Simulated scan of single mutants.
Amino acid sequence: MHFISEELENYVANHSQKEPELLAKLNTETHQKILQPRMLSGHFQGRVLSMLSKIINPKNILEIGTYTGYAALCLAEGMQKDGFLDTIDINEELFDFQQKYFEASEYAGQIKGHLGDALEIIPTLNKKFDLVFIDADKENYINYFNMIVPMMNPGGIILSDNVLWSGKVLEELSPKDLSTKVLVEYNKLINEDERVETVLLPIRDGLTVTRVK
């Protein structure tokens, strides 16, 4: 679903910073070899993630949902020199692909990929985060949020992807559509939870920026 015309989307992308060479290569290889390449953050959203990270200048970053590693590398661009990024994904088949690009980047040694259930892995990380990006199974967004908030430094930022869900958040809910049901509840939660303040940006499929007080 396009929220603005494709022509305007192209204009926006063409008037935003170009993606780095390594990310362009990752983008191309993802589309050539990996199923569901639409899950990739891509050029424009990737530059948004990079810019937000550079503004925040985080020391510790957590990403929930690695896919092929594009967003992780974008977020790493704003990381402090001694910073570290933990990224979690449950898909074993993508792990070697991710590692290839992490190791080819200037952030090799500062990004650790975790394989498994994020709800089990997150409590073991034992650190405070400045920036978190949630882009995994929508059914667990609320669970991730409630687990993460106590692990955030004051003023830390939680980014949540796909919160417009191709416009389904405005449609009549199907009893079988758990993902949309949870996203509607999640959007309401992060807008009303007194521990945070949130703005929803209509970027691609919806991106919320949530600041922990």
Rank of each mutant, 00 (worst) to 15 (best):
H2M: 08
V12H: 06
H15I: 07
Q17P: 10
Q17V: 04
L22R: 13
L26T: 01
N27L: 10
K33T: 15
I34Q: 02
L35I: 08
Q36H: 14
S41A: 06
F44K: 14
Q45L: 14
V48I: 03
M51N: 03
M51L: 07
K54T: 06
I55S: 07
P58V: 13
G65H: 11
T68Q: 11
G69A: 13
Y70I: 01
M79P: 02
G83N: 06
D86R: 11
T87E: 00
D96Y: 09
A104P: 13
S105H: 15
Q110H: 05
I111D: 01
K112L: 07
G113A: 05
G113H: 13
H114L: 00
L119T: 09
L119G: 00
P123R: 11
T124A: 01
T124D: 01
L125G: 04
L131E: 06
V132Y: 14
A136P: 05
F145W: 05
N153P: 06
G167Y: 03
L170R: 05
E172G: 01
E172M: 02
L173D: 04
S174W: 07
K181V: 09
V182T: 14
V182M: 15
V182D: 14
L183N: 03
K188M: 06
L189K: 05
E197I: 10
L200W: 04
L207P: 05
R211M: 10
